[in-house]
Amino acid sequence: MSAPPVSGEQRIREAFAGASGRAALMPYLMGGFPTLADSMRIGEACVQAGADVIELGVPYSDPLADGPVIHAAGTAALAAGANLAGVLEVARAVSEGVPVVLMCYSNMVFAPGVDAFLERAARAGVSGLIVPDLPHGEAPEVREACERAGIAQVPLVAPTTTPERLAQIGADAMGFVYTVSVVGTTGERRALSEHFAEVIARTRASTQVPVALGFGISTPEHAAQAADAGADGVIVGTRLVRAAGEGADPAGAVGALVAELAAGLDAAR
């Protein structure tokens, strides 16, 4: 298979570089939640409100890295009939505006065969892939297939990651390194962990690609703090998924929050 004219990795790099001098804003949305049509509109609202990269969750039956809000959203999406084809439709629409990074648990990547999965994703315009239950030692097969498909395989690092592991992960990273700010699952926290700046700094020292911080970032203040501490991107998930599940106008609610987050990052520039 020949690589697409613009590789996913390149598109992601350009999005970080083009974030007008501020940290890239990277909203997460759950594909198919609350409905497929809503998630399509939410993605478009995020782009309108200043998102630089969209992280698109694929709902999964057993999401081990997710806290209760995203877990429940995934369950609801599946109950409402969401499937990979539907989520990739969202990816196709959103990727016309900004690069889309798919967040998908490993069994769904393996089920159809890694190459077949990635080929479908690439055709839908996906630029990157995050597999939250695929640590570095298990990743080579997926990483090589990602290279073939022109998709960046984005690794995660955690506060518990040892320096030796961090060096290996950082060296092999594509697109960006997803830096988990806390020891725990996804979810809102009142404040950023006290070690978040240190976590950003040590990830930065381990890699050539941009460093994005996620897990527990829910307010414009958190986003600004992460940017001040040197994060190239901030990922906001649970807060937005919660908003998507609450109101009568999910896209409006999420769009408003994303605009506030963008303003927070602009102010921190």
Binding site: A65, P135, E138, P155, T161, R165
Partner: peptide, 8 residues
């Protein structure tokens, strides 16, 4: 096949 947090 677990989150990175658990690997250590």
């Amino acid at each position: 096949y677990v989150p990175e947090t658990l690997m250590p």
